[in-house]
Write a protein that binds this DNA or RNA. Sequence first.
DNA 1: GATGGACTAGACCAACTGGTCTAATACTTG
DNA 2: CAAGTATTAGACCAGTTGGTCTAGTCCATC
Lengths: 214, 214
Amino acid sequence: MKKQFNYRQLLGENNPLLRFPALHEASLDEFSQKTYEEASLNDILKKGKMSKGSFYHHFGDKFGLYLAMLDLILKKKYSFFMPILAEKSNSGDFFGVIRSVIQASYEFMMVDPRMYHLSNHFLETDERTRESILVYFSFDYGQGFGSLITSAIHSGQIDRHFSADFLIGVLALFFSNIHKLLPPHSSSTEALTTLDQIIDLIQYGILSKKGETE
Amino acid sequence: MKKQFNYRQLLGENNPLLRFPALHEASLDEFSQKTYEEASLNDILKKGKMSKGSFYHHFGDKFGLYLAMLDLILKKKYSFFMPILAEKSNSGDFFGVIRSVIQASYEFMMVDPRMYHLSNHFLETDERTRESILVYFSFDYGQGFGSLITSAIHSGQIDRHFSADFLIGVLALFFSNIHKLLPPHSSSTEALTTLDQIIDLIQYGILSKKGETE
DNA sequence: GATGGACTAGACCAACTGGTCTAATACTTG
DNA sequence: CAAGTATTAGACCAGTTGGTCTAGTCCATC
């Protein structure tokens, strides 16, 4: 009877990655450049200067490492978005909120592109595996957009002929592809004007045009 | 002195995949579901009922197979877009053209989602490897958008404060992510209304609004 | 029928994969 | 100091990877 590893011990302040910064770095490098399957555990251990024995003792297996890493990433990401949503969520200004959110996305990306790509990659994996990972996280990740959009539709800020699901998809698309729209090697001011263009594009597309037929 | 394999013999009407349909199918399945690196040559050969000896004789190596497959895919894709661009390119109606193009994208996707995903995946690989593949193809893939957009800017159909590169990025983003915006299990009429919503979103966002300040 | 090249089958290869196991070491507690 | 537990190192494992190689078959040309 083998005692099986409990992944939950990886999460929170006991996250072993906090005690092994070199391994943490190596994991971010490897997993952000390759698929989960492609990422080489052996290479990570080599770069992170940890032995097989220690690794399997602390993390259980490859999935455990991925989970521990994702825990830190998602918490970091949350720390970028929580203050904004807390502050502006009730302002009633839908486009003001998403402007702030996309700016926060950009800042998160600049702090560590590896985390940005990893969280995007995570959001793009098929729902089944994503669910099997989210089981371990208490906070419900992501869909704050839903309520934001439906209330904006009801308050008449968004043209009614767009469906909420469609708009959620469009926003998610933009937010996880900022890096593809920024000019290469752009300065932060250039980047900000691009972000403004994204918002403008969205806004004048979906804002209900009340005065148009007058 | 080993005689080296010439990849060019894989292209065009001598493409060996045309003679081995089972292998062609197996390749599309495997490469559309996995990364190039993840895709298992052994599995492809097993499913495609071809021996190692035959394979390396006809295709040279894994890259050769990928190249041969991409050749057929890109030609197929071109057959969807060429007639549209030939017919409508000079109409002067920018939004009419991109509406037709996105509908063609959708039809291409419906004919074979594997090809659609593979061509997207190809467009998203880093520029270096993409270049090293494009060497083998004569037709210059993709950037018909550029001239279309600049001429639309000059003719005043697009608001001047959007840069051409930005708009190219936005269009590419939408065109390669149609599948994420369609409602799940959507009928073709549902799909078409979604495509219309995409165009509407783009159009009323970037169309210059001449009458707005009157 | 003989020669020679196109083609095929599959045994084999070194390199690598994630994971297991044992033995030794470090550390805590009595 | 002794006993016991937590941690570590790395040899080892079976399975898979893309690729090579040899031996043989098939088929056209002479």
